[in-house]
Amino acid sequence: MATTAATAGRIAATPGAARASRSLWSNAWWKLRRDRLTIGAFILLTIFALLAAAAPLLSEYVFHYRFAQQDLLHTYEKPQFDNLAYLLGTDEIGRSQVVRLLYGGQVSLGVGFVAALVNLTVGIAVGLTAGYFRGVIDDGVTFVITTLNGIPQIYLFLIIAALWQPGPYVLIAIIGLLNWTGITLYVRGQTFSLREREFITAAHTIGARDRRIMFRHILPNVLPLIFVLAAIDVGAIILLESALSFLGFGILPPTPSWGNMLTNGASYFVRAWWLVVSPGVMIFLTVLCLYLIGDGLRDALDPRLKTH
């Protein structure tokens, strides 16, 4: 037909119309590489994680100080460069703050990331299923969530933490298995609205199975906002861990975590401000980096936004 041929001809004349094959993910990566802030945040977070992972090596070969090592002759040492172990000062029983911070990173980052991963996995799976299939499945999920949310969370954590010996793994299990409700409700709500969109009807029309519709059509449309939620989630978990530690139900001394260092240091704030500042800054920077990464990922995954 003349019209069609003319249109095709006009379009074909556009130079450079061909573009390298790009999926949603490679496209996101391509955009992400140009986003300096997100990359910077990612690098900083990676450095934190590597330092935490290398804590035993660093304490032995660089600082020559074990994390539980006490030195009652050098309590409340101010931060100084003369002795590397005192780089960030010492606490009330002469433990090296910097070494404890490195070890604390292992616990805080580990618990934060793994528990958030558990949260996200459960939240996405349950939220998608409930939102997509609705009916009885959704009623059941909603019942469990409202029941869980009806109990003040801190009580729930305290009860469970009192039942089992607290430690990193128990903490991950507790937080991971109790904190998924927020993400589930969010994913469920988004799924509700997305499943009524016409492109989902179109997917049904071409004969797509439920699994394909859930994971290829609905999930990619929920995912970008999930990244932001995940970033907030990791930060919230690190803070939750410190709250539990403060109450004595989180990580038990002498194992350090940023949370228990912060709450412990609070008592000595007037005498030794550095005990509060260093874990505080670490938590702050970690959460900030996560927010930036979440935000950057959301933008990168939206094909409608162009980065320049």
Partner: peptide
């Protein structure tokens, strides 16, 4: 098959 009314709503915005 079916052709839909709204060409903005019937294509998944995150698929090429």
């Amino acid at each position: 098959q079916m052709i839909f009314q709204d060409p903005y709503a019937s294509l998944n915005p995150r698929m090429t």
